[in-house]
Amino acid sequence: MSKYAVNRFLFQIDRDPVLLAAYKADPEAMVARWEAEMAPYLGPWGQTVERSSVVTLSAEERRMLVEHDYVGLFEMGAHYFLTLTIFIGIYEEDYMTSSGPLAFQKEYRDKLSHWIGKQYPSVAL
């Protein structure tokens, strides 16, 4: 399990409106592009000289990112703030239009309701 790699994907995509739009439109293509062009370089700041071999996704992590599976991400211990922020960025406006304010946030919350009263998966790396 490579929480660091998953967190880095969420961090890098969420801070760039062009990448975020690409991740919304075609998640599989964006994840593949990130793995090919961004993950192999040191750090999350977009530099493209220094290489780094430590950032790799498992098949299951790749699936969760491709499927926007925020429940799975919560359960593997991806950081809750990164996960919440990026998927609000992707879904909030569409949900707002169809179902009103906070509709996406409430659906997200309710999909995690089986965790109420239990100790959540740790976000520590």
């Binding site: 925020y70 809750y80 703030f81 996960t83 919440l84 997200y108 919350r109 309710d110 995690l112 965790w115």
Partner: peptide, 9 residues
């Protein structure tokens, strides 16, 4: 709570 089952209550 952020990104968990007790947020936005």
């Amino acid at each position: 709570e952020l990104g968990g089952p007790r947020m936005f209550e």
